[in-house]
């Protein structure tokens, strides 16, 4: 069947089997491999993309169901060379290690901040509670999203000196 959608601002039309999962359509047909998958069972959230601005798990949405809708993937987060504040935040606050869950985490963060520009740490934790990260232990992801909330326009390189929440104690 033929489907059309707007993905990262580009209108695309493609022939797909009805059973093709959105995550495979994005990765295999459109070759946007920044969207990953991790579990099959809708538990891990590695495959999160934004559908009409809302995070969805693209392993549990058929590409056919997205016909006529708008999708944003990690490749659509930056505005050209300018990173989204969320992307900057993840680099500033070490919100990623292996990078596998990161695209999904950042997209959820973007949607959260669009909805609630000043989330409390617990609200951030709730927002990402459908996504699993095996590397970071989440605290730095929370800090990364807080960083983005505190820098809604991002940060120019010369002003990125930090005001981290990180406090390590040393004897």
């Amino acid at each position: 069947m033929q489907i059309s959608m707007t993905i990262n601002g580009t209108f695309v039309t493609h022939e797909v089997e009805p059973r093709v999962l959105l995550v495979h359509f994005i990765r295999d047909d459109l070759r946007l491999t920044g969207t990953h998958w991790g579990c099959d069972t809708t538990n891990c959230g590695t495959c999160v993309v934004l559908m009409d601005g809302q995070p969805v798990k693209s392993c549990t949405v058929l590409a056919a169901m997205v016909d006529g809708h708008t999708i944003t993937t990690v490749e659509g987060l930056a505005n050209g060379a300018t990173l989204d504040p969320v992307q900057q935040g993840f680099m500033e606050e070490h919100g990623l290690q292996c990078g596998f869950c990161t695209p999904g985490m950042m997209l959820t963060a973007r949607a959260l901040l669009d909805h609630n520009p000043h989330p409390e740490p617990l609200q951030i934790r709730e927002a990402i509670s459908g996504q699993i990260c095996r590397c970071t232990g989440y605290a730095t992801i929370v800090r990364s999203i807080q960083w983005a909330a505190e820098h809604p326009a991002g940060a120019a390189p010369e002003t990125t000196t930090s005001e981290s929440t990180e406090q390590e104690v040393h004897a």
Partner: peptide, 12 residues
């Protein structure tokens, strides 16, 4: 390594 990962340009 982060600039590639935050752009979805990791290569797995």
């Amino acid at each position: 390594e982060d600039p590639r990962f935050v752009r979805g340009k990791g290569h797995y």
